[in-house]
Amino acid sequence: MRPPHFRLNSFLSPNPLDDSRFMSQSALIDRRTVIDWLGIMPFMIFALLFLILPTLYLVGGAFLTPDGDFTFKNIADLFSPNIVSAYWISIKVSIASSLGGAVIGFFLAWAIVMGGVPSFVRSGLLTFSGVASNFAGVPLAFAFIATLGRTGLVTVLLRDLIGFNLYSTGFNLLSFLGLTITYMFFQIPLMVLILTPALDGMKREWREASEILGASTWQYWRMIALPILWPSLLGTTLLLFANAFGAIATAYALTGSSLNIVPILLYAQIRGDVLHNPNLGYALALGMIVITGLSNVLYIWLRSRAERWQK
């Protein structure tokens, strides 16, 4: 449900905004062009007011002093220990949960596409993935507190049945590891949903040809399947990374403000200017946009590479 299946090659085509060759023609066409553009005005105005301008306002504010002078000081201030550590924990949680989600999601997608399991397993898993990838936010935190929290089902069962005290090992749900495990609950299904079509696109002939030529299963994966799949794999992992990086509700409900990650820091900043500099808050937001933006740009680029094989 989530992944954008849009064609990006067409985005690289000559500038669609360039209507200059119409201008020399008759006034009739001119009027038509105006009407054409009027038709998408409501959408453009909406996007401008509620998507683009708010973002640009923050981006601009990141380079201003509270008095309105241009400065790089806010960006430089991002490198203070507190903020750097927030970014670092956010990046670590996002990398860990996206890699974990990608690996497990890959094996699940592989199992339902190539593992020879009955078709009800496939449709069941895909339906469940559609639900679970949208089951995020506050309720997800509740679910994991009830499962792996101090009195959660798994914690209690481990203690009572095999005498294993999870929390004496230093495990804490309200920590890096706990947050990673929780995030994987929506990361894995997202990976399954995006990767299943990619694996479906692997042609049977490629496998047969490699087998006829005497390749082992390992050689098939190493020399054929993975080289074809890696843009999808890496691209989707990046998408999962951005997905985790921007998430706040789950982390906030799980840890309150005890875990210092960027979205929570920004939340506190919006609520009460904890950084004592509104413009530093804008810089914090800019940093988030840059990180999620970069991973999305890479994802889009990798996706267009992956599509070469799916014609």
């Binding site: 954008p4 067409s10 669609p16 998507l51 708010p54 973002t55 504010g61 920004l266 933006g293």
Partner: peptide, 28 residues
Amino acid sequence: KLRPVIEFITLLPLVIPAIVIVFGYLRL
């Protein structure tokens, strides 16, 4: 011809985190 541009705009909310968007609203 404008489809890729419109599609790109509709995908922006997946790129810009929700908390950033609402931060912009509060200021704007």
